[in-house]
Structures are given as structure tokens and as C-alpha cells.
Design a protein around this nucleic acid. Structure first.
Lengths: 334, 334
DNA sequence: TCTGCTCTTGACAGCGCTGTCAGCCGACGA
DNA sequence: TCGTCGGCTGACAGCGCTGTCAAGAGCAGA
């Protein structure tokens, strides 16, 4: 086990009291320069390292850690979020503690518990389940919570989301404007808020455009690329197959592309994906893009702001989306 | 601020001593069932949550946190590592604290410091710099360190790497066997060990195959896709342009593909990439693949093992690689 | 009934640090 | 010369929990 000198040892070596040593190492004022130097020398030569655990405890039991509970860190969207959060927290001298829920509500609440035991100063969550009663209790107890990507139903907390409706509308219009009428929609799990928003807007736009019963091309369950692939394949094999597909998340886009590769005439089907991804550019895929890193950054910013000022009004940040035309969305109907 | 009941409050409510309450909440034996129940009820009704910070301190000042310092969490390779690590740690009741160094040695050492202040029980690192003197001191002080992806030069620590030589050899042979002689190599920063291993083996195999001066097609600096793209474009524009490219990491592969798209005749150039990536399958890119999640898992496993038994012999784990033929690497020379 | 044991419980002293408060000293103004 | 004030320092009491140790209760066997 790692035995390190404590502050007391440093203080003794420098011939000062514990408290004075503490002052020096925390950069507090009102220490004579000579004393300061003696303590610093002692600390350096002993290889002293302050114990943040003890310091946090003494200061009131709160750590300078912020927890982030997310669906799946291996998904490029979530890792972009995490990187935005981390960057912002760092500016404020805070550290990020990540945990992934695998989109499982039960695991989410277990993780919440663990992070709370660690006395995180705030929690940033992409809510998996619909039931946030556990969280609600914590908020009442004074915990700072920020939700990101999806709002937490019925909870009055700071939230950062993108303009899902606007993005879905733009994407659908984009395809309609290129002449498509039969447009498929490959979406995520129906209980996810993002699915609901995107699909509802898709249907609304189709109705406005006078396309009857667009619901027949609506599919859901594409939370993995493999599932999306099957859904897309089934959709494209139908008698009334769409000439264009709106893939409602990055997994769905990949799966749809896989399906299109295997279906005869698949190369002619227009595709617009929701969520940009690195190779979309190379593949020439038109997407609804937004800034996931910024999303994380804003969430962290809100967390910091609320910790500092618990009574500030709850904020809802909605980030804009843009359609990036790269070819796949501009193909005319076959 | 989040005011929560302390153990003392719970104990009082249950009419027992602090210590007995502690026993119950830690699941220790030798507590009368009736007492146990009283304490549990009190804890539940008060919304008690143990303070892991204080508990860790009382237990000796070590947290059940394991730190992971990595290059860039947004890179799919590192996030796969992180997810493997997290999964394994969880099995042992440990939590992961991630921090990214942006491949910057200075930042790496600052982060190391922060994690140590947090008294992480172990540190898993993908070493950025060449100078690990700071780490060396910590190890001497008893810290458990495991390095992953690249060995830390001159340090006797547990290490998990892939068989870079074997992978590079297989990839180069693969291209040679498909008739290529002029083979380009687009590699990472030259100070990285993985670059050195892969490039050295590439040159060795080329020499064995009787291809003179393969070094003329060797390029480095492809740590981002953009940089790789420029390198590959330059390589392919030369008078003695290669008919095949070995892209030595996932960034390099993406950049190379971008360059090939833009260069006339680029579609005929064979490509083998080092590191698999999600869309490689869709794009038909032949790659040298290995299991990054497993790599993380093994690293975490070693960290746990060494923490438990500090004197065990140092281990070097080398994971195998495979060539996955998907088309791009099987194209004959033009 | 007494001894010896196990089971259960609690008192107490920290873990390593910080906040509070009080004390000391030299300097400065009157 | 004295009073006062500001800079500097240290004693001390915790933060919320756990480890140690010892004491009390209950019970079996002698």
C-alpha cells in the first residue's frame, strides 16, 4: 500500500504547525515568505501529495467530482458529450466521474446511488428510464442534476437538448423537396423521447405535404446497427417500398446503409441520417448535424451554475441542428 | 447544499450505537436480526446514504476508484478500452475515473497528480510521453500502475499491448501476396511505440520480400484524419506512387480513404488499415483487427491483481491480431 | 452453580485535513 | 511612551466513518 507523508509530517519537517503547512499548500495568504518556502521545500523533498479525500471531508463532505451517467460510452455521440463535459468541468477545477448505464433504468439508479455515496457535487444524466422518482428525491435533498439529450419527464431540472423537431422537420422537407413522397423512417426505441419527437414531427410534415398514411413507413427499435439493418431491410422489401429513408439516429443510419448495400437497387434510395458521424463525409451521407461536444459543455456549465446558485431559475437549452447535404439525401426518387 | 442524515442520526433513530449502525449498513455479521431490521428501517425512512468519502478515509485514506488516463476519449479505440476497463472494475466493486491527456505529456502528469490526490487505488495509463519519471516515483511509493496499448519505456510495470509486429507483418504480407510491391505506409507520430513497432516490421517484411528501399513510401505524422489525408495524398501523387497503402491506425485509415477518394485512380489502390472501426465493414475495408474491449478488461484485471498482491511478478500481456479481408486489401495492383 | 465460550453491542480513538478562534509580535500614530 | 492594528501562527475541534477492544448477555457443559 501506498504510504505517503501526511501534512503533519511535512509540517514537522518544516518546523511549523499543521495549520500553517495547510495554508501554504492551499495557497492561502498571510504566510511569511520564508515560512512558505520552508514548507514548500519540505513538501517537495518528502514527495508530499495532499489527500483530496480528507480535504473534501473536512470541507464538508463534498467532493469536487461531477458524475455523468450515460447510455453507452462506446457510442460516439456519448463520448463526444463526455468530452465536452470534461473540458468544461476542468475549467472549474472539477473532475468527471463517468458511468454507463447501458440504457438500463435499473442500472441507472444503482449507478446514481454509487455516485451519490461518492458525494458528487452534481450529476449529469442522459435519462434511460421513464421513472426518475429516485432522482427526484435527491433533487429535493439538494442535489444538482442536469439532464442532457432527453428531458426527464415530469422533473423540473436544467436540461440541454437539441432541436429534435426542427431537425426532423428539416430532414423530411429535404427529402420531400427532392421529389420523394414515399419516405421511410427508421427510429430508435419508442420509449425514448428523441424517438417520439423525431417521429412525431416526421409524421406531421408528411401530413402537411399531403402524403396520406405515412405511418406505414414508420419503424422503430433501431437501437443497434444490427436491429436497424433488419428494420430497414424489411421496410425496403415491402410492396410499397419507400424511395427515401430518414434514419433517426447514428445507429439507424449505419444499419440502413448496410441494408441498402444488400438490397437490389438499394444504391438509388435516398438517405438522410440524424446525428453526424465521422465517416458520413467520406460515405457522402446527408445528415442532420449538431454539436454534441457543445451540448456536453453546456450541460456542465449549467451544473456548475446551479451548484453555485441553487435558486436560479431552471433552464432549458435547445441547440440548433443543420442539414449537411452530402449526396445521399439529394438523390431523386427512382 | 445537500444535507443528508449521517450515520449518527440513523443510529440514534434506531436506538443503537454508531458502530452497530455501521455494522448493519456494511452487511457485517454478528448483529441481531431485530437490531438489523430496526437500523435498516431507520436508514430507509431517513433516506440515509453512506458517505463513501468518509468511509474511505476511515479505512485508510484509499478510495475504491481506479484512474484511467488516456489520449482522447472521443477516439473509438480509447472508448472501447475504457468500456472494457469499466466492466471489469465493476465486477470488483471499483469505479473508474477517466481523464484525457490529449496525448500531451505535461497534461498527463498533471492528471496523474490529480488522480493521486484523489487517492485512486490504481492507475491505468496509455502513456503519452517518453518521460515517466513522475510515475516511476509513484510506483516506488507503492502505487499500482498498469500501462495499456504502449509500454512505458524503462518501467517495470504490468503491460497490455497487442501484437503490433505480428499485425504489421500479416498486413504487409497480405498486400504482397496480392501482388503489390510498391506499398505505402501511413503512420502515426514517430515517437509512439506503436508507430515504431508497426513501421519497423513493415520495413522488415518488405526487405525480406526483396523490395528495395521501402522506406521511400514510409510516412508519419498521421495522428489525425486530416493529417493522414495530406500524407496519403502526397504519397500517392509521387512519381513512384504505391499501388497499395498500409494505414497504420484508425485515423490514418480514414485519412487515406479521403485522399483516395480525391486522387484520380484512387479507387484502384489497395488499402489495409490497422485497427478495426465500425464502418470498415460497410466500406469494405480490410483491416488488422483485435479486441480493444478485451484489452481494457485485461488491464483492469492486472490492476486488481496487483493491488491485491503487490509482489506478484510483472506481467506482459500480448493480445493477438487478425487480418479481416473485406475487399480493399485484395485489389490487385493496377 | 460455576466456568468458559460465543454472540452482540458500544466507547473511543483516530483517518488527514480544514475552519475557527485566540494569541503573539512588530509597527505605527498620538 | 502607550494603545492599537494588521500580519502571522498555532491549538483545537471536528468532517462522517471504521477498527480495536472490552464489556455484557446468554448458554452449554462440568
Amino acid at each position: 500500500m501506498n504510504r505517503r507523508p501526511t501534512l503533519a509530517v511535512v509540517a514537522q519537517a518544516a518546523g511549523v504547525s499543521l495549520k500553517t503547512a495547510s495554508r501554504v499548500l492551499n495557497g492561502e495568504p498571510n504566510v511569511a515568505p520564508a515560512t512558505r518556502e520552508r514548507v514548500q521545500d519540505a513538501a517537495a523533498s518528502l514527495g508530499f501529495r495532499r489527500n483530496a479525500v480528507a480535504a473534501d471531508l473536512a470541507r464538508g463532505g463534498f467532493s469536487r467530482l461531477v458524475g455523468f451517467i450515460t447510455g453507452d460510452l462506446a457510442n460516439e455521440f456519448y463520448s463526444a458529450l463526455a468530452s465536452g463535459i470534461e473540458r468544461e468541468l476542468r475549467e472549474h477545477g472539477l473532475q468527471l466521474l463517468t458511468a454507463s448505464s447501458d440504457e438500463d433504468a435499473e442500472r441507472e439508479s444503482a449507478l446514481t446511488g454509487e455516485l451519490l455515496e461518492r458525494r458528487v457535487g452534481a450529476l449529469i444524466v442522459t435519462p434511460a428510464g421513464a421513472d426518475h422518482s429516485a432522482l427526484r428525491g435527491e433533487i429535493a435533498a439538494g442535489l444538482t442534476v442536469v439532464v442532457v439529450d432527453r428531458p426527464a419527464a415530469g422533473m423540473d431540472v436544467d436540461t440541454v437538448v437539441i432541436d429534435n423537431r426542427g431537425g426532423a422537420r428539416a430532414a423530411t422537407l429535404h427529402l420531400l423537396e427532392h421529389g420523394h413522397r414515399r419516405i421511410g423512417f427508421v427510429g430508435d426505441e419508442p420509449h425514448l423521447w428523441t424517438y417520439q419527437e423525431r417521429s412525431a414531427e416526421f409524421l406531421a410534415v408528411m401530413a402537411e405535404a399531403g402524403v396520406p398514411d405515412a405511418r406505414r413507413w414508420l419503424r422503430h427499435g433501431a437501437h443497434s446497427a444490427a436491429a436497424a439493418r433488419d428494420l430497414a431491410a424489411e421496410l425496403l422489401a415491402g410492396p410499397d417500398a419507400p424511395t427515401a429513408v430518414l434514419a433517426a439516429n447514428n445507429r439507424a443510419t449505419v444499419g440502413t446503409l448496410q441494408a441498402l448495400r444488400d438490397v437490389p437497387g438499394g444504391a438509388d434510395v435516398a438517405v438522410v441520417g440524424f446525428d453526424d458521424f465521422e465517416l458520413a463525409d467520406l460515405l457522402g451521407i446527408t445528415v442532420v448535424a449538431y454539436d454534441a461536444v457543445e451540448m456536453g459543455r453546456r450541460a456542465a456549465e449549467l451544473a456548475v451554475a446551479r451548484s453555485a446558485e441553487p435558486d436560479r431559475p431552471v433552464e432549458l437549452v435547445v441547440l440548433p441542428t443543420t442539414v449537411l447535404a452530402r449526396g445521399s439525401g439529394e438523390r431523386p426518387p427512382r
